[in-house]
Nucleic acid binder design. Structure first.
Lengths: 221, 221
DNA sequence: TAGATTGTTAATCGATTAACAATC
DNA sequence: TAGATTGTTAATCGATTAACAATC
């Protein structure tokens, strides 16, 4: 793998999509794929795919294309899937529990070690085999087990404070599901947010545009 | 509001963030904000904010800045928050139920009318006051009530098929929570996806980079 | 009025696309 | 070998930043 000078976030955000598409191709028994073939199925240009992969080195063979297996493997490596990252969940409300029960952490190279909550009804129980401890024990757990990531699903009012605690406890990243824009002063700690609200409002904008468009067409056919 | 020629997706994706930040400012009792002030708190340049807003028209006052209330109002209007959009949920598994119970649809201008599932244990029940019907009844419901959006939380294997059914039933948009990249042939129908996996893998990449960086620093201090 | 800050055009920067030699 | 397709550089396009006149 090439020493990656500086990869733009646009490229980084496409890497998981490549990985996902290659996994699907693999399941479908496809052995080789060209940049134009992959581009067609993903809605990207062949040129862009080659340019993206070029950031990390040459994974293909001229005149042949890319081997699905090994390209998937390489991109997985770039994404850090085999690094054995660990995470804990903060907050075991509806959303926290749903993610614990549904999300395939291991397919993404993560091990979910524990969950934490302040609710005495939850503390001491298990969710899908994952033990729930009291939030007071979070710091000790995270630092002794060197946990990489904290998944935040606490109420929005507690989000920033809990984020700060995670950072102080030594996590490398926060996966933020609260609808709050965490600020993280600590350099070297990454915050990645899933903002449901932003996503729905984007959809709202797009269908509103569509509505206006259709109305205009009715008036001026 | 200006006739918006063609607004780039980069701008569109920032609109919900503006809306969110303006709401927070409003709650904090802030009355006016300058582009540089807003930029500082959001990590954007003042120039970019003015350029973004310029896509839709002049909302500020020279020498003064922007009134938080009215700017929030205007952006909400652009996003279609007051259009009374409606939606239904497909799939009432852990994730579907968690979203129904947790997500503040009304704050985003949506009314959640019903949920659908094939599981006989769910059909006929309510989740947070939302009635659950059998999926067979979805088409009739969506077309008679002119539902705007279908939220997909069905198992991945059923995703594409259920997406197709929603489109045929006449929705304008699909909010996709399955880890499947829906293809939608129908022009005028919008698909907006929340890919947990892509988000976590991006985080995985970023912390892996950080790990490499720190290791290098240890070796060459 | 003087100061501040927008609206808006121009300049710069970065990302995408095109092109083509290298080579499997 | 001929054909195909990559790796990689150059050209283009679009998004961000800078600048400044307009004006509150």
């Amino acid at each position: 793998m090439k020493r990656n000078a500086k990869v733009s976030t646009a490229v980084i955000r496409r890497l998981p999509r490549y990985y996902r598409h290659l996994s699907e191709l693999q399941e479908d028994g496809v052995v080789r794929i060209s940049s134009s073939g992959l581009g067609k199925s993903m809605g990207l240009t062949a040129s862009q795919i080659r340019q993206d992969l070029f950031c990390f080195g040459g994974f293909g063979q001229q005149g042949y294309g890319y081997k699905v297996d090994s390209l998937k493997e390489e991109i997985g490596e770039i994404l850090g899937i085999s690094r054995g990252h660990t995470l804990v969940v903060l907050g075991t409300g509806n959303l926290g529990r749903a993610i614990i029960q549904n999300f395939r952490f291991s397919s993404n190279g993560f091990r979910l070690l524990a969950a934490f909550d302040v609710n005495p009804d939850m503390v001491g129980t298990q969710v899908a085999g994952v033990p729930v401890y009291h939030t007071d024990e979070m710091e000790a757990f995270v630092s002794s087990r060197q946990v990489d990531v904290g998944l935040l699903t606490v109420p929005i009012a507690a989000a920033q404070q809990m984020g700060d605690r995670l950072v102080r406890a030594g996590v490398k990243g926060i996966w933020n599901f609260t609808n709050y824009e965490l600020t993280c002063s600590q350099p070297g700690v990454v915050v990645e947010s899933v903002h449901f609200s932003d996503s729905l409002l984007t959809l709202s904008y797009l269908i509103s545009q569509q509505e206006v468009l259709e109305k205009t067409q009715e008036e001026h056919p």
